[in-house]
């Protein structure tokens, strides 16, 4: 075992430990701010995991979108909430046991099946021009070819999806009262006071 492999294994273990601890923290921590930052740790570690697995563009995208945008959004969402009203202990009823049992069974089945499958026998179908060395440029360029050639319909659909998400989020988050007040002052309709209830 040479030194570089050792580093690799060590980094992999560290990253996965980060994911595990971070996700546990995101679920179990009482203070929501701590949970949000713990979620940030998970996202960062997942991005590093992509680096370990040699998927650099996905890693960069993960860092950019999840850590840079979505986690900030989560933290802001926590910031606009009220202070949590004390930590009441959650009741662990029959549903808790059922869920825990289901998750355990699912996990054991998954790990058993994944462990017993001979993944190395899979014949990767050689796709045109994908080089296994995979430098950053060629990898991303392959993605570009695929995205704008074969998958152009989902690509364009994504822009509409983003549009719908933007419109929907603004529609949900915008202050409707201010809008109504503006309209009221513009139309000078005095009898519409009952809209605010």
């Amino acid at each position: 075992m040479n030194i570089s492999e050792l580093i690799h294994d060590f980094v992999l273990a560290l990253v996965e430990l980060g994911i595990l601890l971070g996700s546990l923290g995101a679920v179990l921590l009482v203070n929501t701010v701590n949970s949000a930052f713990s979620l940030g740790l998970v996202f960062t570690c997942i991005s590093l995991l992509y680096f370990v697995l040699n998927a650099d563009f996905v890693a960069a995208a993960q860092l950019l979108v999840y850590v840079g945008a979505i986690n900030v959004l989560t933290v802001f969402a926590v910031m606009i909430t009220d202070e949590p009203a004390g930590s009441e202990t959650t009741a662990r009823g029959i549903g808790y046991i059922i869920t825990a049992g289901t998750c355990t069974i699912l996990f054991s089945i998954l790990s058993f099946v994944i462990h017993n499958t001979k993944w190395s026998d899979l014949s990767l179908i050689p796709q045109s021009g994908i080089s296994t060395s995979g430098t950053l440029g060629s990898n991303v360029q392959q993605l570009g070819y695929k995205l704008l050639g074969e998958f152009v319909i989902p690509f364009e659909l994504l822009s509409i999806l983003l549009l719908a998400a933007l419109v929907g989020a603004i529609n949900l988050a915008r202050n409707e009262d201010a809008f109504i007040v503006n309209k009221k002052s513009a139309a000078s309709a005095p009898y519409k006071n009952s809209t605010f209830f």
Binding site: A77, L166, A173
Partner: peptide, 12 residues
């Protein structure tokens, strides 16, 4: 803050 983060996310 939330609204700006929202718009930023989409364009990100």
């Amino acid at each position: 803050y939330y609204m700006f983060a929202l718009v930023f996310t989409v364009f990100d």
